[in-house]
Design a protein around this nucleic acid. Structure first.
Lengths: 113, 113
DNA sequence: CCTATAGTTCGATTATATTCGAACAACAGA
DNA sequence: TCTGTTGTTCGAATATAATCGAACTATAGG
């Protein structure tokens, strides 16, 4: 598989988005992507979880139309499909992202030893 | 139990709201409450489901801080806590509701016989 | 080629949600 | 006080999701 298949924005349902964003891990991934404002590899999010779990969450984010993944060598570069989502569901992603900036997500921090 | 306990707006987490709205049945309930713009009893939403299921969904909507239920005689009057939610998470509920107005939710329609 | 790297897929386990009938509680009206 | 109405609670079945190790794929670089 050369590149990964993504749904078109027409295929993206609101409930897909809500479901994808309802999981704290995925909400954190989306929030970090937005904050970074650039493409990020899966490995860059060190959420203290095995890569099979991360891969699972990215798969759901892709199928919800929230994330686009471009394969570049061995790395998978992820970015938010924020313009498309905003066009179809104005304000949804924007307001949720705004609401997340105040949140700490300290559950993902590595416990100090 | 005279009246039902609700969380304060301070206790309401964004993930609670996202989780509550991720279920199509609950999203439909919230959308209808918003569209009606008035208090509605649980029985008014005929979503073709037994009342124990409806009660379950209302319980989750209440615990997410989305719905307030006031007991009036034998009826339970439900309303959206939209002002409070908007103050804490501006745009979230508003944009989601706007996005739902275009949706049909025909899965809830009683099949014609 | 060989090896390391980045992610995916598979399969099994565990956890969490949904669903709904039945029993229950609170209340109104006769 | 009896009866119907409205909704909650309980408990069990079923469905869906999250988790993660292990095996696998594709690619880059020597």
């Amino acid at each position: 598989m050369r590149q990964i298949k993504h749904p078109t924005i027409e295929q993206v349902e609101l409930t897909d988005i809500m479901y994808a964003l309802a999981d704290p891990t995925r909400l954190e991934i989306v929030a970090r992507l937005a904050k970074a404002g650039r493409k990020m590899t899966c490995g860059e999010f060190d959420l203290n979880r095995p890569k099979s779990s991360m891969s699972h969450h990215f798969k759901i984010l892709r199928s919800a139309g929230l994330v686009e993944t471009v394969i570049d060598g061995t790395e998978h570069m992820n970015s938010l499909r924020i313009e498309e989502i905003e066009r179809k569901y104005p304000g949804v992603l924007q307001s949720v992202l705004k609401a997340t900036t105040a949140i700490d997500f300290d559950i993902f921090r590595q416990p100090p030893r």
